[in-house]
């Protein structure tokens, strides 16, 4: 091994993630970008559980897990301690979308308001996967989860995804970005930028979950790309509160993304639900307009 040898060593094999796991890919990409002088503060969740069953750890950088909801408060303390000791390690708080959007938002808000020099990275697989695919504040509209199941009088999750990047940008975060495991070089560039930007930075990584979303394990990247190509996920950067870079696409209809996943199956079977599909298309259209992602093809 050459270039990626260090990275492979920083997040080791033998972890117990499902085959095709985007979170495991994200862990590798993050460490490849951040390097060995990084302290990882993990929330409880899939990534924590699959990488650290005692006495096994897949982490070859300093790593700490305390609770589900406190990684950014723990990170605050670590950053303060490093500052006091004159140490230079980077600190990354790492959590799933449940830890980030829901239960941990108080601690994140406090840490961002106080301006600690750390990077918060959310691997967003759009539900509570570790406990068995329950909805979170990051679950998209109409996704069927075990607590927002589709049924005779339900089309799945009744609410759209919370706009957490905007919330954290509003805290004055100098750098906020979204990324996807489908585009590793872009993801790594953003992580590198975040850890080298003073102050609290936020990166939200789209991490398709084959187990929770219902697709084959080899399709993780395909699904990640389709989310972007349909406008249901937008990769962008915000610096000092302003959107500075956006990934543009030739948009596909949202069905291209929805039909590939069991969590949206109820929108097509037993019969196609045009009204609901139109609502999801409207979400993509609004994203496209807001971020200006459409590449206009010449007629």
């Amino acid at each position: 091994m050459k270039g990626d040898e260090a990275a492979c060593v920083l997040f080791d094999a033998g972890h117990r993630a499902c085959g095709g796991c985007a979170a495991a890919m994200a862990a590798r990409f993050i460490l490849e970008a951040a390097g060995k002088d990084t302290i990882i503060v993990s929330s409880t969740g899939c990534m924590e559980v699959f990488s650290t069953p005692y006495p096994e750890t897949a982490w070859n950088v300093p790593w700490i897990h305390s609770l589900f909801e406190n990684n950014s408060a723990v990170a605050s303390g670590i950053v303060a301690s490093l500052k006091k000791q004159g140490r230079k390690e980077k600190v990354i708080a790492l959590g799933g979308d449940g830890a980030t959007f829901d239960i941990g938002i108080l601690c994140i808000s406090g840490a961002f308001e106080r301006g600690h020099d750390f990077t918060y990275i959310c691997y967003d697989n759009e539900a509570y996967m570790n406990t068995g695919i329950q909805r979170s504040g990051a679950t998209p509209y109409d996704a069927s989860t075990t607590t927002s199941p589709a049924g005779k009088c339900s089309y799945g999750n009744p609410r759209p995804k919370k706009d957490l990047p905007a919330i954290l940008a509003a805290h004055g975060a100098p750098y906020v970005a979204t990324a996807s495991i489908a585009y590793p070089p872009d993801l790594k560039k953003k992580v590198e930028k975040a850890v080298n930007t003073p102050g609290p930075c936020y990166i939200q990584i789209h991490a398709p979950c084959c187990t929770g979303w219902g697709f084959e394990s080899e399709k993780t990247i395909t699904i990640g790309k389709l989310a972007i190509e349909t406008g249901l996920w937008v990769n962008y950067e915000m610096e000092e509160g302003k959107v500075t870079r956006v990934k543009k696409v030739v948009r596909k209809p949202v069905e291209a993304y929805l039909t590939e996943q069991k969590r949206f199956r109820h929108l097509f079977k037993p019969k196609r639900n045009d009204a609901e599909i139109a609502k999801i298309q409207a979400i993509a259209d609004r994203n496209a307009e807001k971020f200006g992602i459409d590449i206009k093809l010449k007629a």
Binding site: D12, A13, G14, T52, E56, T57, A58
Partner: peptide, 14 residues
């Protein structure tokens, strides 16, 4: 305190 040093995950041959 339930700590571990690196390398041990390799014992789990997935």
């Amino acid at each position: 305190g339930c700590t571990a040093r690196p390398g041990k995950s390799r014992e789990n041959k997935t």
